[in-house]
Design a protein around this nucleic acid. Structure first.
Lengths: 245, 245
DNA sequence: GAGTGGTCTAGACCACAAT
DNA sequence: TTGTGGTCTAGACCACTCC
């Protein structure tokens, strides 16, 4: 129907990749909020003037990135941040028996402050940007297992934590629903550290106990850093699982 | 050419998945050792009596699992365990500056013994199977950074460590070349532990220092556990990186 | 029954590697 | 020049969901 992509410029992209980018732009724009049923493959193919096969390959790529979910017989849905997704994509902590569950959270502290140098570097911010700092303890099987510090740019999450409403347990769902920010990927750096007196008191263990520290940078659909998170986990009853394949 | 797959049994698989399984069987069998150039898509499609598109989808799946590598203009090659693959698929440790390099290794001890209960469980072995136990220290930037214990079933690696030849630094390449065992995937459990006196002496740090312990179970093409590995990393200069996407 | 995504086919042309 | 994998198309039928 349309001729194949021309090969003029050096940054050549196959047609299906170009279509993928156009679809992603519409996801980012908010035209199709999470939970929306996309137009059918044939409709989109017609709209872009490509074959169904090419459009399908574009959607398959977005599905592989977990930005959309394909459902035979129903259609293609924009991915939503439910507990299921949080658990499978972003939560790698397992109990000694191999089970996995989302932790409960107890807020310890919530302050508005400025990013220190390290935080600004990690988030690719201007130094001394305004950030929200959240400290919480997370419970697994009803017992305190993890201390967590979050750094959020105030510019992206205006008004967060100002009302009296309690913060939900799964924050990414809130980012998406209230601020239209979808956490699409993250990178985590893992280290072993000694519990400082504060960690120790919150987790009920001796200072100096080894803890697994996880430093996460979460990014949105445009690959922009939106959250910095430092978790310290007591690994006597739990471990972090990574599958390599 | 051939009719679509029948829908008789409950364990229905699409045709391309069946072809994938047949190709995998030939990889496992040793018919196509690592490094081999596979027959072309058209040749294989003819052989199985399917269209090129279906055969392509089967090969694409194997490529996604990193069992084969596609090279435009050349053909499809059976994946080989080179340093590149070891680094990208199996080695997640980075230096403080984000760089990554394979560590050097120094052998500390090599003994033939029987698996203890925990080891036998992890490897899905009969208890008290004969295993080879290797202890080594691994160096990054010329400095000791990690203590590593490996448990290998003697039945799978006969004669390993009996001659005087030194063990190579990247073992997976040896498993593949000498024993025809390809490590295809692995799972890693991460915990924070305190350095015991032995770790401390080998790494030159104080006993009790927090170390990142990585327990890896490596599996071959048939998903059979072939190696158990327990690494303890000094994370003052290095970290373990996991990308979630 | 209507509409969706999932599978499969057949054929065309392109980019790339090897000779 | 030959042969490979990569892209793109057009059309068919199937399995599934929903009304």
């Amino acid at each position: 129907m349309t001729k194949p992509a021309p090969r003029d410029d050096l940054a050549f992209k196959p047609l299906y990749a170009q279509i993928r980018d156009l679809l992603l732009k519409r996801l980012v724009s908010g035209e199709w909020p999470p939970g929306t049923l996309l137009p059918s493959e044939t409709a989109l193919a017609g709209e872009y003037g490509v074959s169904q096969g090419t459009l399908r390959k574009a959607l398959d790529e977005l599905a592989a990135e977990r930005l959309v979910v394909r459902q035979q017989g129903r259609g293609t849905v924009v991915a939503r941040h439910d507990n299921e997704r949080s658990l499978f994509q972003f939560f790698h902590i397992h109990g000694a028996d191999g089970r996995r569950q989302l932790p409960d959270s107890k807020l310890i502290d919530l302050t508005r402050t400025t990013a220190d140098r390290e935080e600004a570097d990690a988030l690719a911010f201007a130094p001394r940007s305004r950030v929200l700092r959240i400290e919480r303890v997370r419970y697994l099987d009803g017992r305190p297992a993890m201390v967590e510090t979050l750094i959020l740019p105030q510019a992206l999450f205006p008004g967060l934590g100002e009302s009296d409403e309690p913060l939900p347990n799964t924050l990414y769902e809130l980012y998406q629903r209230r601020y239209g920010i979808t956490v699409a990927r993250a990178s985590e750096q893992l280290r072993a550290v000694a519990a400082d007196p504060c960690d120790a008191a919150l987790l009920g263990l001796a200072p100096g106990t080894p803890l697994l520290e996880i430093r996460r940078i979460a990014r949105d659909l445009q690959n922009r850093p939106v959250e910095l998170r430092r978790s310290r986990l007591d690994t006597r009853q739990h471990y972090y699982l990574n599958e390599l394949d």
